[in-house]
Simulated scan of single mutants.
Amino acid sequence: MRKLRNMLLVLTVALLWCALHTPKEGTAQALVIARGDISTKNVALTIDDGPHPGFTNRILDILQGKGVKASFFVVGRMAAVSPEIVRRMLAEGHTVGNHTHYHNNLLSLPLENVHIEWDMCSSTLKTITGKAPRFARPPGGNYDASVLEVARKSGLTTVLWTANGADCTGISSGDITKRILSRTGPGGIILLHSGVEATIEALPGIIDTLKAKGYRFVTLDEMAGPVPTPQRKELRSASSESPTKRMD
């Protein structure tokens, strides 16, 4: 069963590669980041959803106390309500990314609405911070090649993950910790969520354990490196956990 799953994942990535690497005149090449450089012990901690005043600030407090930088994928309409939290993220050295404006399942929307979701969130974040976000993550990992292409046209690089804490499912902080630690390796991208008490409970131990193992936490800006030129064509290696595709 595992071999079949891996084969299907490889096939899906190959199909996406073909879709994303078809040149379009006058446009930059789409990019997807699913993992960082596996030759380094760098990991990127990413936090989706929010900002939630009662949760996100506590996450930021933990990160500040541990000396760790992370990347936050925020929801545009929630950022508009709590802009001071978004500004705090940037002021403390974190990366702020686009998690759409209304947190809809992008596979359930017509493509013109997908475009609106990305652009409204980017516009909101630019109004708050003075600059548009570089990275995006589709809610629930629900995407296909057309969703990625719309993100690219909106100037966004889509970021997936390698270690999903499944913290939105109601599992305990201990189970969240076990999932993350068992799935995190060099170049890993960790997925956790704001708005979950168990995540806040698990986060300090996750950070301490990975640091003790020699891992260094980096932002997605650090992991991805400089903004690519329009001629650069790249698709990073596939995530070990395949998000949902439109074809499912």
Rank of each mutant, 00 (worst) to 15 (best):
V159G: 01
E201H: 09
T244P: 05
P138W: 01
N6L: 15
A212M: 06
L90H: 05
V150Q: 02
P204R: 02
R232Q: 13
G185Y: 09
K233L: 12
F217H: 08
K66G: 03
G214T: 05
L125F: 09
A163L: 09
H101V: 09
S240T: 07
K131M: 13
M247F: 15
D248T: 08
A14E: 14
K213G: 05
V13M: 12
H21Q: 08
D248V: 07
H101A: 12
E112V: 14
G65K: 10
E222I: 09
K178P: 02
T40E: 12
K178A: 13
N57S: 12
L148K: 06
R216I: 09
V86M: 02
G26M: 06
G205F: 06
Y143C: 12
E112P: 07
V114L: 10
T56C: 08
G214A: 06
I59E: 03
S71H: 01
G174P: 04
V13F: 12
H21Y: 05
T129N: 02
G195K: 00
I85C: 01
P186H: 05
G188Y: 06
M78A: 15
A238N: 10
D175K: 15
A224E: 00
T95Y: 00
L31C: 07
K233Q: 11
V227I: 13
V10L: 13
K69M: 02
T22K: 10
I190W: 00
L106I: 09
K153N: 10
R58I: 15
R232I: 13
R152G: 09
T209A: 14
F72T: 02
G205W: 04
Q29Y: 08
N164Y: 12
D119R: 10
A80Q: 13
I190A: 01
M120F: 11
M223R: 04
L90P: 00
H115T: 15
G67L: 13
R246C: 11
N42H: 12
